[in-house]
Design a protein around this nucleic acid. Sequence first.
DNA 1: CTCTTTGTTTGTAG
DNA 2: GCTACAAACAAAGA
Length: 272
Amino acid sequence: MPELPEVEIFRRYAHSVALHHPIVHVEVKAPVLLSGLPPDQFGRRICGQAFTETARHGKHLFLKLSGGSWLMIHFGMTGGLTYVRSRGECPRFTGVRFSFSNGHALVYVSARKLGQLCLTAQPASFVTARHLGPDALDPCLTPQDLGRVLRSRKRAVKLVLMDQHLIAGIGNLYADEILFQARLHPFQPAHQLNCRQVTRLFRALRHVCTLAIARDANPSRYPRTWLWHARFAGGRCPRCKASVVHAAKLGSRTTYWCPQCQRGISSSQEQT
DNA sequence: CTCTTTGTTTGTAG
DNA sequence: GCTACAAACAAAGA
């Protein structure tokens, strides 16, 4: 699930439970998740310190270590964090386990191991080195900024939304939801959007991400008016009821949209 | 066995 | 440099 809202919930979770406990052991069950350092050195660089601060940029979570460096955590498609209170407990799909002196532990779990953990000097330097765009919820980001980004690309607006080098944090599911709320067709070339549409997109982006976070990134608590609940073959648009949502591949991922509410393109590549 | 999957990177080609 | 596409990564679930 880890797109921006989920990662923000993980950040808050880690912030509330995992700070200021000395780390006594780092167990790497899935070395493939580490980048930059072999497991033993990774552990050595972390042991004896404590997490003291949290940050997030897009889908990337950062935990500051008392020594000054930061642990970067990316969740891939299936990653997550759990705080366990019983000594030695390793949930299914445990990838890395950070054990604290109180016997508890912060566990990074990932069924498909597509995530990544590494150490970095600072979130800002990591973001620069990876050429990540501004965080989708960065308060400094303006509709004008979004407009500039969109005008600079001819690709489908959904692909631009999901490009982490342009804006960080939006993935396949939230991109669909944002476009649905903004009533924009996902295949519409980005540079064709007019001012009004850019404004709608900006508001929808803010609204969807903010509300998802307020609902603890728990889809069962998302409004009935969200396309989220109709993401299946035969799903009906929650707004116009009449139409069945369409599904098609865009950038190798399945895209859902309402053909009635989301117009703006001469219909092509559409299927049910 | 086949196909799909909330992500990212890399290679190829135009 | 931009765009598009495919494959790879790893593994579960339908």
